[in-house]
Design a protein around this nucleic acid. Sequence first.
RNA 1: GCCCCCAUCGUCUAGAGGCCUAGGACGCCACCCUUUCAAGGUGGAGAUCAGGGGUUCGAAUCCCCUUGGGGGUACCA
Length: 496
Amino acid sequence: MTAPRVRIAPSPTGPLHIGTARTALFNYLYARHTGGTFILRLEDTDQARSSIAYEKDILDGLHWLGLRWDEGPEVAGEGARGPHAPYRQMERLPSYAEAAARLLAADMAYPCFCTPEELDADRKAKEAAKLPPRYVGRCATLTVEERAARESEGRRGALRFRVGTGVVGFDDIVRGHVEFDVSNLGGDFAIVRADGTPLYHFTVVVDDATMQMTHVIRGEDHLSNTPKHILLFQALGYPVPQFAHLPLILNPDRTKMSKRKSQTAISDYIAQGFIREALVNYLALLGWATGTEEEVLSIDEIVERFKLETVHKGGAVFDRERLEWLNGQWIRRLDPDDLVDRLRPFVEAELAAGRIDWMPSDDELRGLLPIVGERLPTLGAIGDLVGFLWVKDVALDPVTLVPKRWDTTTTRDGLAAAREAIVAVGEVSFEADELEPPLRALAEARGWKAGDLFMAIRVAVTGRTATPPLFDTLVALGRDRVLARLDRALEVLAGA
RNA sequence: GCCCCCAUCGUCUAGAGGCCUAGGACGCCACCCUUUCAAGGUGGAGAUCAGGGGUUCGAAUCCCCUUGGGGGUACCA
C-alpha cells in the first residue's frame, strides 16, 4: 500500500476555528502515525468572505499548534513547499477550468442560465408544496441553439453537473458503509458560478484528485456532501479516495460548535494562555481515546497510539473545564526556562493594560516559578496571581484588611507587632525560613491564631486574600516594600 | 419536509457476547495536607448502558422498531 496523503483544507472566511484545528490535528496524527504526508490547502474561492487576515490567522494558528505540513503554503518565515503548488485555490483556476471544460464537452455538465430570482422562486414553490428543494432542471435540456441565443444576449451561465440516477455508496473508515440515493441530492448542482469562479464541491474534488489524496478526513458535516464528490471523482475519471468523517465538536446544547454559543477561535485560547500541548492533548481526546487510562499525552505519544478506526461516531461537547485542567497539567510539566518564555508575553500584556507598573526580569520570573506554577490554570492568570509584585501600590480597603475573626483594633495591633518582628529579622535574614518562626511565635505569645495574623499580613502587603504562600511572597516583595505596605495598611486602618 | 448520521455517569470516555454488582478522567461533595489560594492524596455521590422487542445458555456489546439528538439540503465552505 502506498503511503497515505491527507490534507486539511481550511477556508479563510474566519479565524482558525477549534473544529478546523481538531480536523487538522487528526489528519496530522494519521499522517505521522502511518508515515504519510500531511498537506495544507487554502480553499479561498468564496472571494466575498475570504480575507488575507483570516488566512494568516489560520496558518499561524496551525503552525503554533505544531502541526507542520509537509506540503502547503508559506508560514512564519518558512517557504511554501511541495510539488503541487500553488496551494491556494484562487491560484489554481486553470486546473478547474480544464476539468470543467472536460465535463462540458462530455455533456456531464451544462450551462445554466437561471437567475437567482428564478432559483429563489423555485425553492419557495417546493417549500410551499412541502417538497424537498431541488433544481428543477430548466436548463438541463437546452439545445445548442438555445444556449447560443442566451449567450448572445450577454448572459453568462453557471455550470451545473448532471447528477443522473442511481445509488452512491462508500465505506467510511469511522462510520462503515453509507449509501445515498442520488435522487435525494437536490438535483443537478452548480460547480462553477456565472462569474466563472469554481464552487467548493468541484474544487475540493479536482484538488484532492490532482494532489493525489488517498484519504479525506473531515468533519461529519461533510458526510452528506460525499456522494456529490464521489460522482465528480468518477465523472472526471479519478480514483475515489477513502473517507473518514469525524464526529462534530458540540456546544453545551449539543448543536454544532459555533461562535454564537462557544469560544471557537484558537487565537482566543492562545490569548488567554492555553498552551499548545494542552490544546492538542485535549482536542485529540475529543472523539478518540487511547483505550487505556492514559490522559495526559504529548503529541508524539498520541501519534504513536492514534488509530482512525477507533475514532468515535457520536459528537462531543467541548468542555472548557477539562481543557483548563489539562492546561494546568501541562504548565506544570514545562521546564522553567520554557515557562518563563511563555509567561513573558502575558506579563507584558498586563503592563500594556496598565494593570502593573513595570516588567519583572526573567530571573525574577524564574524565581517565582516554584510558588506560581501550580497555581496557574492558564498563563493569562499570572497577573491576577502575582501582579501585586509589580505595582507601586496595592489598593487597600479597611474591610478586607481585617481578618474574619478579628476586629480593626486587633488588626492594627497585629500588623504593628508583625512589623516589629519583621524588622527584627533583619535585612540579611530576610528569607522564608527566617520569617516564619518569629511570626508564629508572635501569634502564640499574643494568643492569636497564626492563620489570622498571616491573613492580616497577606492582605496588607498584597491587597488580596488569596496569594501564594505568605513567606515566599514577602521575600518576593522584598523587605522595604513589605515594611512600606505594612505602614500604609496601618494608615488605612487608622482612618477607619 | 426530505436524506444521512448518532445514542454508556452533568461532560470527555473504557467497553468489540460472559472478566461489568459498568472502569477512568473533568466537574461536584467530604476528609487529609495546610497561613490563604492552589497543587497533591484518600474517599463519596453520580449511568435501570435512551425505551421496547428479538437473537443467545448469556447482551452495554448483535438484529429490528420507537424515541431523542445532530448534520446536510446554496451560483457558502
